[in-house]
């Protein structure tokens, strides 16, 4: 495990190498070499099982973090190759030629995050949602609850009470809550 991590560090100048637990490590590499690293791991290091591809929206950094998780069935270890791509007009080289199922992930990511994978088959087709007109639904700035309330009208007639407020209203009606401070510039 460490050996491979050393190699990957050397070859692809990987940063942020973290061994999460025995047999699972995450590395971050540059966007340009991410697929090269994945290819290298598959062809030369025996990481032949493609576990999954995922994306995390680090909206505060303005980045999408793509993850290619690979598994080596012989040594039973996993390496997650991560790469950060820009959140504006996100695009990534397609890896559909590496494994047969990769295009599905890329199609999903295109729909859910709006990341483009030029050249990937059927990448522009709908995956799970149909007739979606809002911002891609898995992005952090998409507020699902707000959307749901606007669109699907929840059943009316519900109201709740905060115990503290309600108790104060009941036990000490008309009591002032707090003294409003007067500011200097008044």
């Amino acid at each position: 495990m460490n050996e491979i991590l050393d190699k990957i560090k050397q070859k692809y100048s990987a940063e942020d190498v973290k061994v999460q637990r025995t047999g699972l490590a995450f590395v971050t590499v540059n966007k340009d070499v991410a697929l090269d690293a994945v290819t290298w791991l598959r062809d030369y290091e025996g990481y032949s099982h493609f576990v999954m591809m995922s994306c995390v929206d680090w909206i505060e950094d303005g980045k999408f973090q793509l993850l290619y998780l690979l598994h080596n069935p012989v040594t039973k270890t996993d390496v997650g190759v991560k790469t950060l791509i820009n959140r504006d007009n996100p695009a990534m080289t397609s890896g559909h030629h590496l494994w047969k199922q990769v295009w599905t992930y890329q199609r999903e990511l295109k729909e859910a995050f709006g990341i483009d994978f030029p050249g990937s088959p059927r990448v522009d087709e709908n995956f799970v949602v149909e007739g979606w007109v809002d911002i891609p639904h898995m992005r952090r700035d998409f507020n699902t609850k707000e959307y749901s309330e606007e669109t699907y009208f929840p059943r009316p007639g519900r109201e709740t009470h905060d115990p503290a407020t309600y108790m104060r209203e009941q036990l000490y009606p008309n009591q002032p809550v707090t003294a409003k401070r007067k500011d200097n510039d008044k």
């Binding site: 809002d134 009208f153 059943r155």
Partner: peptide, 19 residues
């Protein structure tokens, strides 16, 4: 189907079937 159930806040599922 009554009031959205677990998915009351989901962007993908409806809340009230009788609508």
């Amino acid at each position: 189907t009554i009031n959205g159930g677990m998915y009351y806040d989901s962007y993908s599922t409806i809340n009230r079937l009788d609508k």
